[in-house]
């Protein structure tokens, strides 16, 4: 079948503004959007720039806007899109474009670093064995630990669109990952960091994050657990 891709292109050395370019080519319904971008790059226009690595939804490199929805190019198959109409590909919103589909993600990473995304444990560890943790407690972390930092959630959130300083769902999810780890001693420190007007309270439970998460993480639920923890703390 023939498909048409309309891609937002921007080369800072040539273009004043981003603009759309169209590509029409032969494709198969089992191809992913990433396969199609490769086809365009490798057969038509070598200058098309996008990030990608693992190509099966684990590394989180190729989050982009596909027909207006944030998703991974490598996890979106043509058969799941309406290929009769033009397929529109744009970079994720709310981040500066560097070139074509490549964004400057510095701010996204800074917010992730802000929640101290590492285990802080002040008590001595057993010298020759693991710390015990029930499987139930371990599994409480698994869903949040699935996060691949693709930024699909944070850039899908209207709160992000309206306020650059909002910490965003990805960083909050990371905070959950450690606040609820029975081995971690710095829950209060992290809760303080997110307990600000531009922190967790800017989440208005809009659920866009859940819809856009390629790993199907119920991000809003995780954020609500943090909110509960904060309310309990204040009582």
């Amino acid at each position: 079948m023939e498909v048409t891709f309309k891609i937002l292109r921007y080369n800072p050395e040539k273009d004043k503004e981003p603009h759309y370019e169209q590509y029409r080519f032969e494709a198969h319904e089992n191809m992913t959007v990433l396969d199609c971008l490769h086809k365009i790059k490798w057969e038509h226009d070598g200058s098309l720039a996008f990030r990608r690595s693992c190509a099966h939804g684990v590394c989180g490199s190729d989050g982009m806007r596909i027909n207006g929805k944030n998703h991974l190019a490598c996890s979106t198959l043509l058969k799941d899109l309406n290929t009769k109409d033009t397929i529109t590909i744009e970079p994720l919103p709310s981040m500066p474009i560097v070139k074509d589909l490549i964004l400057d993600m510095t701010d996204f990473y800074e917010k992730y670093y802000a929640v101290k995304p590492y285990l802080i444990n002040k008590s001595p560890v057993p010298p020759d064995s693991e710390r015990l943790q029930s499987n139930e407690d371990a599994e409480k972390l698994f869903e949040s630990a699935k996060c691949i930092l693709c930024a699909c959630c944070t850039t899908s959130c209207p709160s992000t669109w309206s306020n650059d300083n909002y910490i965003g769902p990805a960083a909050l999810l990371k905070a959950y990952r450690f606040v609820f780890d029975t081995r971690d001693d710095a829950a209060d420190e992290r809760l303080d960091i997110i307990d600000t007007p531009d922190g967790i309270w800017r989440c208005h439970t809009i659920f866009n994050c859940i819809e856009s998460c390629p790993k199907e993480i119920n991000i809003t639920w995780h954020i609500s657990q943090l909110k509960k923890e904060l309310s309990n703390r204040e009582l």
Partner: peptide, 19 residues
């Protein structure tokens, strides 16, 4: 492996809470 656990790596656990 124990060192990774100490660093914070989340593992699936046995009934006794071991890795």
């Amino acid at each position: 492996i124990i060192e990774l656990e100490h660093m914070g790596m989340p593992f699936s656990r046995t009934k006794e809470g071991k890795i």
